[in-house]
């Protein structure tokens, strides 16, 4: 690998964009393929698969043995709402390898005392998300119960292709939310992808237990990413 490839690769990684380093094992030549680069033929197929699954490995193409090293951005979790559930979810998710950022414009909720050592934005979601857009390697959980705060980031998460979009609320609350999101231009397919009621069913009762259920759902969504597409193709 030459220094130019290394610099470009690190620039992509810092910008949270996926890339694949392709090394030809016969002559050691290296090529960097960024997610936005179109690649044709068998190599293109292998690169697409690698980006979807996140798995690096050797592939045989023609007479050549190529090593594909996939660099995907680290997953992260954006939580809308500095509420009781978030106080438990933030440290748990951080330990599990999903760094958390919390957004809540209500400054009485979003205080460093309630969220020690957690990245906290006491701002409206539209302001912070304009500066720090969501992406496919981000999970978003909306837990304020307040449409004024939750709706915009939910729509933004669906449009950004976040690997997980969850929204707290009863089925009745969610039905009303669906109507609002449809009015905002969300598609039926996008609505279908929202996890609500939020969290896997472990009969969670306390805020901390709900946090466990949400974190488990986020992990499952991240680790099974792309598997549906694979099943559909088979």
């Amino acid at each position: 690998m030459d220094r130019q490839v290394l610099q470009t690769l690190n620039a992509e990684r810092r910008a949270r964009r996926a890339a694949v380093v392709v090394t030809d094992m016969s002559d050691g030549s290296v090529r960097l393929i960024r997610q936005r680069d179109a690649t044709e033929g068998e190599l293109g197929e292998a690169v697409t698969k690698a980006l979807r699954t996140g798995r690096s490995g050797l592939v045989e193409i023609g007479a050549r043995s190529l090593f594909l090293n996939v660099h995907l951005p680290n997953p992260r979790l954006v939580v809308i709402g500095a509420v009781h559930i978030s106080q438990a979810l933030a440290p748990m998710a951080k330990i599990a390898g999903y760094p958390v950022e919390i957004i809540d414009p209500r400054s009485a909720f979003a205080t460093p005392e309630r969220f020690p050592e957690i990245v906290l934005h006491a701002e409206w979601p539209e302001d912070i998300l304009a500066r720090q857009p969501l992406d496919a390697y981000t999970a978003l959980a909306a837990v304020t119960h307040d449409p004024k705060v939750d709706d915009m980031p939910l729509k933004a998460a669906l449009d950004a292709g976040c690997f997980y979009v969850g929204a707290l609320g009863s089925r009745k609350t969610h039905a009303k939310r669906v109507e609002r999101l449809l009015a905002m231009g969300a598609t039926a397919e996008q609505i279908e992808s929202i996890h609500s009621p939020i969290g896997i069913d472990i009969a969670a009762a306390s805020p901390a237990e709900i946090a466990v259920a949400v974190l488990a759902e986020v992990v499952r969504a991240f680790r099974s990413r792309g598997l549906e597409a694979k099943g559909a193709a088979a």
Partner: peptide, 8 residues
């Protein structure tokens, strides 16, 4: 916050 903060 810089995006690079996501890399250790």
């Amino acid at each position: 916050m810089e995006a690079s903060a996501y890399i250790d």
